[in-house]
Design a protein around this nucleic acid. Sequence first.
RNA 1: GCGGGUGUGGUGAAAUUGGUAGACACGCUAGACUUAGGAUCUAGUGCUGUGAGGCUUGGGGGUUCGAGUCCCUCCACCCGCACCA
Length: 997
Amino acid sequence: MEYNFAEIEQTWKKYWNDQKVYKVNNPIGDAPAKPKCYVLDMFPYPSGAGLHVGHPLGYIASDIYARYKRLKGYNVLHPMGFDAFGLPAEQYAIETGQHPAVTTEKNIARYREQLDNIGFCYDWDREVRTSDPKYYKWTQWIFLQLFHSWYDRKENKARAVSELVKILEQEGNSNHRSPDNNTGSFDAAEWQGYDEKKKREIIMGYRLAYQGYAQVWWCEALGTVLANDEVVNGVSERGGHPVERKNMRQWFLRITEYADRLLTSLDNLDWSEAMKEMQRNWIGKSVGAEVEFDVVVDAPIEENGTVYPGHGTLGMKVFTTRPDTIFGVDFMVLAPEHELVDGITTTGQKQAVADYKQYVKTRSERERMSEVKQVTGAFTGAYALHPFTNREIPVWISEYVLAGYGTGAIMAVPSGDERDHAFAKHFNIPITNIFGDRYKGDKAYSDKTGTIENSDFLSGMTIAEAAVAAIEELEDMGGGEKKVNFRLRDAGFSRQRYWGEPFPINYVDDVPFAVDESPIPAFHQGEGGVDLLPVELPFVESYRPGPEGQGPLANIEDWVNTPAGMRETNTMPGYAGSSWYFLRYMDPHNDNEFADRKITDYWQQVDLYVGGTEHAVGHLLYSRMWTKALYDLGYIGFDEPFKKLLNQGMIQGTSYFAKMVHTINVTDGKENVRRFFVVSNANDKQYKNGHRFEHNQRLYEVVDKEEHDPFRLRNAHLHVDSKGRITKSNLNKIFELYYNEPDDRRIEHVRWDGALENGEEYIQANLEVEKMSKSKYNVVNPDDIVHEYGADTFRMYEMFLGPIDVSKPWDTKGIEGVHRFLKKLWRLYADEQKGWIVTDEPATEAELKGLHKTIKKIGEDIERFSFNTAVSQFMIFVNDLTGLNCHKRAVLEPLAILIAPFAPHIAEELWHKLGNETTVLDAPFPAFDQQHLTDKSIKYAVAVNGKTRVEMEFAADAAQSAIEQEVLGNDTIQKWLDGKPPKKIIYVSGKMVNVVV
RNA sequence: GCGGGUGUGGUGAAAUUGGUAGACACGCUAGACUUAGGAUCUAGUGCUGUGAGGCUUGGGGGUUCGAGUCCCUCCACCCGCACCA
């Protein structure tokens, strides 16, 4: 009876499916519920490439944890679904004409098959797909809740817009100014006087999901707007296309209102420090002051129909984190796009400023970022007045000041800030020193220690004291105030795309209305009209963008024009559906609510969330915000979605590069001429990017024109030995196999790098570790591994590779060791000749000790997510049992349960062979008994002043007193101590005693 | 530049509170059984030395009877952010 993994895995896959053993039930009625545990994976976007061996790493870890918790008696929710809306499917549709719904369906089927091969314990009855109308109905519904809400800064929570309207009716907006601060103040009477359109405009300034005009990242190539985190290094994350700023009417989520709460509640989350830090940086809280400078305008200026005051001043607000340096201000800098620039520029400087603005416009975002050190700018001719001294300060514009941060204007303190210092030096602006000796004139003193000098009433104060004093003084004279600034921007929520959730919004007279609050009486349902949802995504034939940057939906006239108004033609971004999916799993088939409150109260937060770090500032931040909003509005009872976050590392691919020294042409019989390369040693890393091999049937085929560069070898590991050598006979074999050409025809051109011991010549190829990806030809498919070794081996090996959170290259060689282990495990239960060999003999003390040590270790390891050491522990135990020739049920039955989370198929097989009827999943995790681990006697090494002298054995239960007696009484030890009593006896780790003389 | 993290054999890595460093596995070497083996089993395998022994957790210093672990300092690498005032 051999370990036939293929048969075993097939059998139990079917059994689990038929018996629905993974079905998870919500607690029914008031019956006492089992303790719950919610274990969640980040659901995948089903791409056309399928899964590679890196993807399941996190899934395996969470699966082990979920199975373990179930054995421990928990009701475990462990669902899976698909993040099915998104750009790639639409791009693919544009290229091939296949509808995204079709390709998505196909990809999901493939993913599902691959996942099923690995034996995960997902309850597929709870599967969600974000592109399913039954799902996105509730995405739209939550959007409506956000649309119908505003953030009350006094109570620090979201509230219904209807409550806001009542407040405005009663007291105007003096107590609740809108977050965008665009509307002036008005009282109750004024509010009553506004028409509906004006009222709605004002309310829009409060909504958590709102429409506004804003500079957004526009990508011409993709024909869409991108979120901040979809723009990387000045180009689109997808495709690397150039992006530019464009002013467009867009939907936004007012995530900035949650900035402080998103920041402070990070402290209570069990996430890695790196992950929290990434979110903190993204939120970017900085505390400082907003200071208003008066800018002298010396002549009336008319610009675009607006007349600016003649002899007078304009207020210009700056944000600074260093109000203590206010007496060191030597110039001001505005962002070139700042609205005041045109108004303050003097006639004489008009041309210079216009030229500079033109220059900035022509510079791509990429140039701007790569040339950070370059100092540029222009003087406006205007002067600001120092709030304390009335000193005249020149006002400049420069691209190093960003329009989007703070007020888009700064007070420059060259003696205290490096960038300001460089600017002052470059334009010869005199520098005021406010740091005494610590500023030496060559570089800014930006440390935050020491005192402020040369600064009127701040002189002699420490930096911290001066900051407080400066703000106090400014507040007294009304020239500024303490201010907290965030880097976080409101999240763009519109995409000019087809394959996403349509907005439940209709325009009437160009005013956006939620579908449930239509001004047309026949369609008015009152807020929360669930019946009107979902607004279904219509079928389209073409995915071409609509006119004027609109999405493809704008092309479908009879969809856009409805009796209830014109539909919004944008769709929601990819993160909409993924922001709340963890809630839907709890109650996936509910047609009346996104999830029943009783049920969400039971499952609560996700106890363990497993996924990659790439979602640090996207998905993870948005879903935290949605959760907080739903909590504020009373729909759920917790305000953080993911209690514990585990980031799995990447499994990288290994690629080979070799240097080409010659190419030859070969005809393949179909009249196609192909060029093949021969290789030499490749050391020049610099060429590796951009030169990749197209492959043909495992031949290294050249597509690049250039020679003598290192090239990527596709599937190289099939033909390259462990030292990176490609042998002559191997190359010959390939040529022979595929092209039926005489060997010498090809190899005569090769410059071989060396010869093996047997005289065979070889070429050296260099190995590089990089991300596993289709385009790098280094993908390993889990299906292949499962086919060759079985799912259990695959699962255990992925865990055995190393700590879960560390990136590591895939290496197929080591998998043999794990496979051997499973075979060894099998042989404890069954013999090739004798068949089933489990006996009913009682276990010996040694066997029980091993068992309980394993129970303890496995439990602890899983609890701290150290799966690699857990696998090792199994290996040790199985080796022990093999050595002890132990085939006893008393040991092997608990072992089958212990290993079930890791290798569920073989465990289930053994469990049933042991005579059990139900699934091993419902077995209780073996109880740990300390009794078996307690040693009867302990060997101690006795050391005097740390130097080991002798080993002594004592009875374990009386070790301490025995040692004292021995150490004090034993002749030998007395001799070491020169007859003196020891100063101190230190007991160390139960194995060593140290005597200090 | 700022922030986070990591440095242990030929390789992946263990070492939970400071207590025999290198568990477990890969690889390698030798052997057994074999027609054969990419099956299985046994022994060896940090470095150095014939040996007893000596040395060893990126480098240097410190605390301690005792340091991979704690403190200081330097170095290297990885990840994230980056003109954020």
